[in-house]
Nucleic acid binder design. Structure first.
Lengths: 271, 271
DNA sequence: CAGTGGTCTAGACCACATC
DNA sequence: ATGTGGTCTAGACCACTGA
């Protein structure tokens, strides 16, 4: 790892000194990973601590003061680390309360990952999901590709319908690697959770932070048409999603199918 | 406008004083708009100055020092303002060089707004656009809705094909309000620009910052099928886009149609 | 009330780009 | 050599929350 930023300082146990920024004299060896800006090292450290389960989704982080003391840095540096995490949605800050690890459940994470809307503008939520199946199986070619796993690894297939206003809006098939989510089929069948991503947090400490979606048009199969209440060979959207955890693992590969007379896929882009 | 943050201070001509943060005594009246944090006021001010054309896309802003002096604030406060603008993509900062107003042309704005990819992973660029028409007309119902204009306002319709590897990948129809982009049809026909958004910057100082897209599946019309080299009634993606300028105006409503045997619509979501 | 995050300042030093 | 943005510090005051 090349040195960047030229700070070369340890993050713990700084000598009192004058309090001014010190020259590039390497004084004492490094206590924490990498080099590059200190606030980034702090950020990486905090992320690892979240991944390790030290603070679980929805829980409170130590205050900036406490973290600054712990790392032996100024509050401003810790603040910048936490600010980046907040900007990336990993954490929510609330003045007067503290900083919380993001969670798909409860109060925060408002918009979530539901890209399909009714023409009326109403978003298709997960409220009225109907689970049709949850079974362990061998992955087919698309699933192997989407999850980047071995052909002989096992996955869990979860099939559900998303209903809205007493109509089936979306037919959905999810595939999760058995290695990351052992026995999730049993949990699904027992709990019939409203949100899969909340279940992944609670049962496996997997926090979904990012998804990639590929959208295509094709004709509905007979099976899909039956569930969606449309004629076979009606054109439908096929949304293919890969979901990544905070740790960067591919946790889910999903296929969503919906008809687009009454629904559409929506994307707001700031790039 | 309710007061927030309790700072109540003018942004110009601060008295020298001790240099420490001052109490809430309102000393002299406000010189700049709104209240709320100073760095936000600075940001708003800078945005207005960009909108006014004081600095055009691609041009250099004054240094943080210079801006701090001009507004009578510390560099840190100006820095926070510029940082937000940078995070929102309004501006690019480069160490050693300075801060530049974002532009769709030239070096920066790498990923732009092209959501359609070949199955190979290659992005459909604007390089090989073929313009079929650019005419002034009355908007139909969808255009009125998309641009939120009056039924009697005039718009310019621009039809083009996007080619990639010697094949037509996308058929595209754009509609721009004549009021915002007078006589753009003449410019289009004369310059046949690679990028419409670069043209909008240069000719009308309209910087496209944000788009909303609605995606649906339907069957190709005969006209579309002809251009795309497919059979009529093949399922295709219809991507409907509204483009917003920095000022928040609806500048373009666009319809993109592509076949999805060889192409797909891609979306990366961090929400 | 004490503690939290949010704003603001002033000043130091750094890597980098340009001349 | 000069000037730019980038990092880091130390300390002040603020508004908000909850006990």
């Amino acid at each position: 790892m090349p040195q960047r930023g030229g700070h070369h300082r340890r993050m713990k146990g700084r000598s009192a000194e004058t309090g001014k920024a010190q020259a590039a004299t390497v004084r004492a060896s490094v206590t924490l990973p990498k080099s590059s800006p200190l606030y980034r090292q702090v950020k990486e450290s905090l992320i690892h601590r979240v991944l390790s389960g030290e603070w679980k989704p929805g829980e409170l982080l130590p205050s900036e003061q406490a973290l600054a003391a712990e790392y032996g840095l100024s509050q401003g540096t810790v603040r910048k680390a936490v600010s980046e995490m907040s900007a990336e949605g990993l954490v929510n800050r609330r003045a007067g309360r503290g900083t919380f690890v993001t969670s798909h459940s409860g109060d925060y994470r408002p918009s979530s990952f539901n890209p399909i809307y009714q023409n009326s503008g109403k978003r298709i939520a997960e409220d009225e999901s109907i689970y049709l199946a949850a079974t362990q199986m061998r992955p087919d070619k698309r699933v192997v590709e989407g999850l980047q796993i071995g052909r002989n690894d096992r996955v869990t297939e979860i099939i559900r319908l998303r209903r809205c206003d007493k109509r089936t809006a979306v037919v959905e098939r999810s595939y999760l690697p058995e290695e990351l989510c052992p026995n999730i089929h049993a949990l699904i069948l027992k709990e019939q959770p409203h949100s899969m991503y909340v279940l992944l947090e609670k049962a496996y400490n997997l926090l979904i932070m990012r998804v990639e979606e590929r959208v295509r048009a094709r004709l509905a199969t007979e099976w899909e048409a039956m569930h969606l209440g449309i004629e076979p060979n009606t054109p439908v959207l096929e949304v293919e999603r890969t979901a990544f955890s905070l740790g960067g693992e591919r946790v889910e590969w999903r296929l969503m199918v919906c008809e687009t007379g009454d629904y559409f896929y929506f994307n707001k882009n700031d790039s």
